[in-house]
Amino acid sequence: MKSTVPTLIATIVGVVLIVAFFVPATQSWSETAVDWFNILAGVAFILGGGNLIKVQLETISSRRPGWGYALVILVSFAIMLTVGLLKIGVPPAEQYPNHPWSGEYDAPASAFGWIFENVYNPLTSTMFALLAFYVASAAFRAFRAKNIEAMLLLGTAFIVLLGNTAIARLTDGIPDSLSFLRLDQVVANTMSYITTGAFRAITIGIAIGVAATALRVLLGIDRPYLGRT
């Protein structure tokens, strides 16, 4: 019983989603199923938030290595939660000028908006920008001409890297009859034909893999949601 009901729910919802795609009369059922998932995922945040607080508090109280970071997590969490829930500094909405809490919690003039703009924005941009450094070190370490395939990969990388910069303009002098040799054209053709062909093949394999995985879940062969896999 403990495992039958969840399996049944998974199977029924899965079948409904497939059927709703083809049968107009059942279209609203799939919308309802999506709404249910969103509600569950929203409520599940309480579990996640609780877990986060519990684990970080334990780290701090037992003074484990790196407990200072746990403290940063908790303080940041508390600040964002308070500022967002209490709508600190939120100006009233245009339609309700006499109601101080009527504005959006993340309005630019609010404390939440200020933190978003001046703390969150630079932090996430910095994390993303780190990729430039990691790409360089990974390229230096991993791109080795060990065999024919690796050499082909290297050659393609050079062409695409250079073709995506202003250097590609150096080949503009190549006559129109041989325009396919211009660097930007070589890049465009590499991306449009060679890369796209390879990606299509991988994508088709993935699509069928997704269908098979979904079917395994629907049939109860894989049941990751039950702890039995």
């Binding site: 430039a132 390229a139 791109f143 001409a145 050079f158 890297l161 250079l162």
Partner: peptide, 13 residues
């Protein structure tokens, strides 16, 4: 940045 990447790959090889 792209020129540096190309140089790094060449040096690495």
């Amino acid at each position: 940045a792209h020129l540096l990447m190309v140089s790094l790959i060449v040096v690495g090889n």
